[in-house]
Write a protein that binds this DNA or RNA. Sequence first.
DNA 1: ACGCCCTCCTGTTGGC
DNA 2: TGCCAACAGGAGGGCG
Length: 254
Amino acid sequence: MRGRRIRAALVHEARLRWPVSADLNATLAGQRVLAVQRRAKYLLLRLTRGTLLVHLGMSGNLRLLPQASARLKHDHVEIQLDSGLALRLNDPRRFGSVLYTSEDPLAHPLLRELAPEPLEEGFDGAYLHAVTRRRRVAIKLLLLNSRLVTGVGNIYASEALLHARIRPRRAARTLKVADCTRLAAAIRRVLGAAIRAGGTTLRDYVGADGEPGYFRQRLYVYERAGLPCRRCRTPIRQITQGQRSTYYCPQCQQ
DNA sequence: ACGCCCTCCTGTTGGC
DNA sequence: TGCCAACAGGAGGGCG
């Protein structure tokens, strides 16, 4: 998309996680895409005069395809380019978002307080140790708090804790430096491996290339309740934390 | 400040 | 076959 000019923006359904601006077309038309970036799980389309922030939520998907191609059910927003292609957001659950800001996007209220990038410098045991002090919340729930850790969703939280050998219900404040060092390394390793595998397709996720991700085959605990742990063969347990499923190995994770 | 719960929404699955 | 409840990849908001 870089270098293309936006011809028009169509909003078929404005009721996403946040209402899509009614002025989106007037705002975007004529602007050029200068760069495409990412911050946590937000995509940033840097435009001539501002930035379009896109979040896929749980079920969102972006496709870049000929503008004339048929619109699918749940195609909510379409950005038409001067190349004849159009970027379409399809999102059955509508937990995604499309927001425009003319200010510094990193200063936007939704991005301003996000935690450091886990794959950048500075995300290490010392960082995790610092943010887990005096927090009674279970470490697995802390990993889902985007003000403290970004990039780790429900799948990778369970996976990282398995690799770090930490029980998901353990109070964050009880983690020692050594635990935090293993956990930071496990998070980086899991995210890196998942990215290289193209992501984790549970049902219908496909990447920008239209291909599913293959990390599901490499999951150690997620969705494996009752199945043998891939490290020690002990049956994997499933529990609920914050109304979401957590999986862990009672033998490997102490 | 923290921690917990609720919410948004549609689609799929499993039990009866 | 139909109906209903439970659950699903996220994460902000409000409350105590």
